[in-house]
Amino acid sequence: MRLFPTMAVAAMTLIASNYNVALAADKPTLTVYTYDAIAADWGPAPLIEQAFEKSCQCDLVFVVADSSIGTLRKVQLEGEDTAADVVMGLDTNIAEAARETGLFAEHNADTSALTLPTGEWTDTTFLPFDYSYFAFVYNKELTPEVPASFEELAALPEDFKIIIQDPRSSTPGLGLVLWLQTAYGERAESLWEELAPHVLTVTKGWSDAYGLFLKEEAQMVLSYTTSPAYHRIAEEDQRFDWAAFDEGHYLQIEVAAMLKSSKQPELAQSFLQFLLSDTVQDIIPTTNWTYPATQTAKGLPEGFGDTSPAKTLLMSGVEVEKNRSEWIDTWQEKLSR
């Protein structure tokens, strides 16, 4: 009988496929809330998912919010019954607001591998996974000479223009306000007034600003020290660079944290620790276009350049939370003339 083996194979396949389905159903799901650039098809999320699922016996699901702050607001709105186990992509400027919600648990991760410019990491709730500095990006061919500080920028003729973002709707926009505040303190207020004539326009988000810059509307745009790396590596375009400022550059550290309400804290913890592995840290630079948070064996791709800011500026989250409204108010007043 020829039929028998065929049937046996079919039956076995059927059993096996059922078994697979059962296995898949038994797998726990780890839900990570993140923002769209990380979750994008070309972002780090798909690669991280592939790598983590190889070993975790779990289903890793990324849920997308429209922005970094959007992930926090979603979790806040959902409260205790949120589906999120982990939130990935908050930055240190809003981490304090996130801590105050009381929704986040300690990460208990081994942070010895971290090589952040700020030195040792002491926060036990939020775990950094990458960082970059805010900087003004320019086109070397169109703008051969760039200022080396805010003071120098303010002293330039008025037709030297920059494009910045609104601190009320954009992370870099807020970063710039804090940058000036950290570098200049009391003097920040009058400096904003001197910088105002150079501000071509203030946009809602990073995309609008960078779009205008690529249309050559202004000499410099507020972005990151890692932006030129994208053009060099992905587009093989060497024209772009960032202007090094003497007063130093404000740091943006991206962090992840797990939620107290997570039903699988161990899995969430292992995911957080996985973020610091060489696997993920090597994925980050050329997908998220930031610096990795650790020194990997492979190291940073060449296009990222080897210059780093003269000085690293960063304000404590508590201070940001306390003064943010007031500083934004001053900013608005000085720029609205």
């Binding site: 702050i69 609104d166 009320r168 946009t203 609205s336 003339r337």
Partner: peptide, 26 residues
Amino acid sequence: FAIVLVLGGSPRYNTLEVAIFEALKL
């Protein structure tokens, strides 16, 4: 929202929509 900011040149021309965004998001 986006237009009054991007072409407005300064936050001077912002609308209530911007303030609502700030209140809800930030």
